[in-house]
Amino acid sequence: MKSITVLVAFLLGLVLMYAKSLELSDFTVLDGKGNAYPLANLRHVPAVLIVNVASHCGYTDRDYRELQALRAKHDEDQLAIVAFPCNQFGAQEPGTWEEIASLADRKFGVTFPIMSKIDVNGLHSSPMFAWLKAASGNPHDIPWNFTKFLVLCDSTVKRFSHEVNPMQMDDMITNAQSFCGAGYDETGGGTGEL
């Protein structure tokens, strides 16, 4: 039994080490119409907020409203928000992409992109979400809708529970440019500490 534990710990260490060598810009996802969307398009943005969303969740109203408030507050070269519908939690995102996007627009005035519906856990999990979990230092499954990943400087990942209000991340988003370093918006590079 001890050898299995050691093997699992070793494999987890390899996964975490590999995850640290990747960046968000290494991934391509599908937009709502099924077209490839390279996340390298966001490499120049110091703060990228990625959220698994659902239309029929107890957090839907609060989180969509606060996500849109963050979108309105910050320039698009300071913050990108990317939503990924997921039906893995209580079947609370059963609709088509068109239905999901229409509700988000009509009810919440959402102006950030809503990508194609995906899985965030399990065998069919999006590779990007697998990376987000590992790179955040918390490789465990996402427990519910509206788990948030704030990616700073294309590679530093901070994970937030569904219970965290999006506006609670505002200071980190505001300080992302200084965290990434001078010139990040021009080169996509830079390092720093919050």
Score class of each variant (00 low, 15 high):
1 M>W: 14
3 S>V: 10
5 T>D: 11
6 V>I: 12
7 L>E: 15
8 V>A: 07
8 V>C: 02
11 L>P: 00
12 L>K: 11
12 L>A: 13
14 L>H: 04
16 L>H: 10
17 M>C: 11
19 A>P: 04
19 A>E: 05
25 S>H: 14
26 D>Y: 14
27 F>I: 12
28 T>F: 03
28 T>M: 07
31 D>G: 00
34 G>P: 09
37 Y>F: 14
37 Y>S: 08
40 A>G: 11
42 L>K: 04
44 H>S: 10
49 L>S: 06
50 I>R: 01
57 C>Q: 03
62 R>F: 03
62 R>T: 14
66 E>N: 04
68 Q>D: 06
68 Q>L: 02
68 Q>V: 02
72 A>S: 15
72 A>V: 10
73 K>Y: 14
76 E>G: 15
78 Q>F: 04
78 Q>H: 09
80 A>D: 11
81 I>A: 09
83 A>R: 02
87 N>W: 01
87 N>C: 01
88 Q>S: 12
89 F>H: 12
92 Q>Y: 06
96 T>A: 12
98 E>D: 14
98 E>L: 10
98 E>R: 12
100 I>S: 09
103 L>Q: 15
105 D>N: 14
105 D>P: 01
108 F>R: 07
111 T>Y: 02
111 T>M: 10
112 F>G: 09
114 I>K: 01
117 K>P: 08
117 K>H: 07
120 V>Q: 06
121 N>R: 12
122 G>E: 12
124 H>L: 14
125 S>D: 13
125 S>K: 15
128 M>D: 05
129 F>G: 01
129 F>Y: 15
129 F>K: 00
130 A>G: 11
131 W>I: 08
132 L>Y: 01
132 L>H: 00
132 L>R: 00
133 K>G: 04
133 K>R: 15
135 A>W: 05
135 A>P: 03
136 S>E: 02
137 G>N: 11
139 P>H: 03
139 P>T: 05
143 P>H: 12
143 P>D: 13
144 W>Q: 03
145 N>D: 05
145 N>A: 04
146 F>A: 09
147 T>M: 11
148 K>H: 02
150 L>M: 04
152 L>E: 05
153 C>M: 03
155 S>L: 03
156 T>F: 06
159 R>W: 06
161 S>N: 06
161 S>P: 00
161 S>A: 11
162 H>I: 00
162 H>R: 07
163 E>A: 11
163 E>M: 06
164 V>D: 01
165 N>E: 13
168 Q>F: 00
169 M>F: 01
173 I>G: 00
175 N>A: 14
176 A>Y: 01
179 F>Y: 04
180 C>S: 03
182 A>I: 03
187 T>C: 06
190 G>K: 08
191 T>V: 08
194 L>R: 05
194 L>P: 15
